[in-house]
């Protein structure tokens, strides 16, 4: 079952992603590539519904809808993780900014 390997592999990648601090630029690039791929794939899937069945059989899934569900879940996971990391990064920056403001303001007052 090709799909099992793909799904388990993807899940492991997600797990690894959570643990690694990624640069937002890389994240953004990956997101954009994914978007560029998803748009034509989505269009084709809508225009020719049978292609999803064909693609599903290719990876050992019976129904096209099942394959779509798998892809949907994986995309959702990726989006959640990416935004979590983005938030985390922003939080850190916010702390630094707040700290710098507090330190400078006090110093100005003393002078």
């Amino acid at each position: 079952m090709t799909i099992k390997v793909l799904l388990i592999g993807a899940t492991l990648v997600f797990g690894f992603m959570t643990l690694r601090e990624r640069r937002p630029a890389t994240n953004q690039a990956v997101r954009r590539i994914a978007l560029l791929l998803l748009v034509p794939v989505g269009l084709i899937a809508v225009a020719f519904p049978d292609t999803t069945v064909w693609a599903a059989h290719l990876v050992g899934v019976k129904r096209g809808t099942d394959l779509l569900l798998y892809i949907f879940v994986m995309t959702f996971l990726f989006t959640t993780l990416a935004s979590y990391q983005r938030l985390h990064h922003l939080e850190r920056q916010l702390v630094q900014l707040t700290r710098e403001l507090a330190l400078r303001h006090d110093h100005d007052a003393v002078r």
């Binding site: 916010l94 702390v95 707040t98 700290r99 403001l101 507090a102 330190l103 303001h105 006090d106």
Partner: peptide, 10 residues
């Protein structure tokens, strides 16, 4: 001496 965080940061 008081330093002030503009927003709560923990």
């Amino acid at each position: 001496t008081v330093l002030r965080h503009a927003i709560n940061q923990g």
